[in-house]
């Protein structure tokens, strides 16, 4: 993994929570996408991607999240994003339309609540 970002995976019951800490650009988007896939299993009903500690995200990262959402839908799984409105990436998530396409919560707790509600 490049030194730009690291992926922290936690398992909350049936839901993997993947936090992206650091910066995502074209240089590491593919690698990050693979790490996220590795955290998923067929048993995961939903995946939470936490962007609270993401310092930078551009279209490379936005593309990866759109693609991830599409892959999950094909597999009858849900994607939940955690975006702190005060975080630097909040605007790009809004402008890109990602917040419309995918369910977005302000905190990890709220996202987990949503995931459980969907059971």
């Amino acid at each position: 993994m490049s030194s730009l970002a690291r992926i922290v995976v936690e398992q909350h019951g049936a839901f993997p929570v993947v936090a992206i800490e650091g910066e995502v650009d074209a240089s590491n988007a593919t690698e990050i996408s693979r790490s996220i896939d590795a955290a998923l299993s067929n048993h995961s009903i939903a995946l939470v991607v936490d962007l609270t500690e993401t310092g930078y995200l551009d279209s490379a990262g936005i593309n990866l999240l759109f693609a991830l959402g599409a892959r999950l839908r094909d597999r009858q799984q849900r994607l939940l994003l955690v975006v702190d409105p005060a975080s630097p990436v909040a605007r790009i998530v809004a402008i890109s339309g990602l917040a419309v396409a995918e369910r977005t919560e302000e905190t990890r707790a709220a996202a987990l609540e949503q995931a459980h509600a969907g059971l």
């Binding site: 551009d58 279209s59 790009i92 890109s96």
Partner: peptide, 13 residues
């Protein structure tokens, strides 16, 4: 739509 998204972002920003 991926590369298109980059151009769209530039125009919006």
């Amino acid at each position: 739509q991926h590369r298109g998204r980059g151009l769209m972002l530039m125009r919006r920003l």
